[in-house]
């Protein structure tokens, strides 16, 4: 069970909400300046505090399995790029993941379905309280929680949402959005963070400023900012549907048809088609496919997830076939609504 198996508030546009806290223990230097023994001690500390979590050592697992964790947003790509003992502690429902040995000693992440950054923050803070019992955190009265990168100082909080914005993308509004979000202390990025392309019209929006603003205020500002983006996207969807109903229906149903019949699907093509189907489901041009299944497809058709599901190394051609098999099963459930002539 993962965040993408559920549909939360505003689930047609907001896939998930996330809160991430960066924390370090005062006793040890920051990652990159630690001995292997110290790295192991920090790891043991976190494992001991969260002994009911499952620990996955990313330094010893196969690259594709590790990649699958990134694709499912349970760990960052940076965690995979180091050496030495490092990994992730996962709660049973995978809604909480605690990375150990990334840029900071621990990175607590809570993921929720839909538009619920406040719930995510609450969950992350609960884990924070458990971890701080294990050893004192590096904290300064003036600068707050001390982090390896000064951009995370203060609260150490990044609150964000993953949103599906096909209409704002089509209207070319993302660049403007980027500029105005930046002025408000927020950032919009592609699906897998900094520098990644917005595959499937999926974006992540999160706060940039972490110091001088309380946790609840960060979340409340995020809610306001994202709220107005949602309104804009919804408005554009309505307008487009009103002006070009047949064009919209054609695009969404054609995409469902392709997904339901394709034998080979590259990732970019599949992401694009999924975006159209997702849009179709939200504006009534398509029925029969639960939105949660579309969300699941978006994540589980990524290469690392496909390989880790198959349990063996595959060639990329086979991956494209596996992706198409997965998509067909879901897209074949699509029902086309009757059109009044």
């Amino acid at each position: 069970m993962s965040f993408y198996d559920q549909i939360g508030a505003e689930g047609e546009i907001v896939v998930s909400s996330r809160a991430r806290l960066a924390r370090n223990f005062t006793e040890y230097p920051f990652p990159g300046h630690m001995t292997e023994r110290e790295e192991q001690l920090v790891l043991d500390l976190a494992k001991g505090a969260l002994d009911h979590y499952t620990y996955l050592p990313v330094n010893t697992m196969s690259p594709m399995n590790a990649s699958a964790l990134v694709e499912r947003h349970l760990v960052s790509r940076e965690l995979l790029s180091g050496t030495g003992p490092r990994g992730v502690l996962l709660s049973e429902d995978e809604s909480i993941s605690v990375m150990v040995g990334e840029e900071d000693h621990v990175r607590i992440q809570a993921l929720c379905a839909g538009f619920a950054p406040e719930t995510a923050l609450k969950q992350a803070l609960e884990v924070d309280r458990i971890l701080e019992q294990a050893a004192p955190y590096a904290f300064d009265r003036k600068l707050g929680y001390l982090t390896k990168c000064p951009t995370n100082l203060g609260t150490g909080l990044r609150a964000g949402v993953m949103v599906h914005l096909p209409m704002l993308t089509e209207q070319g509004a993302i660049r403007d959005l980027m500029a105005s979000l930046n002025k408000l202390g927020f950032i919009i990025r592609g699906l897998y963070g900094e520098g990644t392309a917005a595959q499937g019209d999926l974006y992540q929006i999160s706060n940039q400023v972490t110091l001088g603003i309380a946790e609840e205020e960060i979340v409340s500002r995020l809610e306001q900012v994202v709220g107005s983006i949602l309104t804009k996207e919804e408005e554009l969807r309505r307008q487009y549907q009103k002006m070009y109903p047949m064009r919209l229906m054609d695009r969404c149903q054609r995409a469902a048809g392709l997904l339901a019949t394709a034998r080979i699907l590259t990732q970019p093509e599949a992401m694009k088609l999924c975006s159209h189907v997702r849009l179709g489901l939200s504006c009534g041009c398509l029925k029969g496919i639960p939105m949660a299944e579309m969300n699941r497809l978006l994540f589980e058709m990524q290469p690392g997830c496909l390989v880790s599901q198959a349990g063996e190394e595959r060639t990329y051609l086979n991956l494209d076939q596996m992706r198409a098999d997965m998509a067909r099963q879901i897209a074949q459930k699509a029902v086309l609504p009757l059109i009044e002539s």
């Binding site: 904290f139 707050g144 203060g154 609260t155 400023v209 110091l211 603003i213 309380a214 946790e215 205020e217």
Partner: peptide, 11 residues
């Protein structure tokens, strides 16, 4: 970066 050097929030 942050426009301030004074933490507000949890401890």
């Amino acid at each position: 970066i942050h426009g301030t050097v004074v933490h507000v929030g949890r401890a």
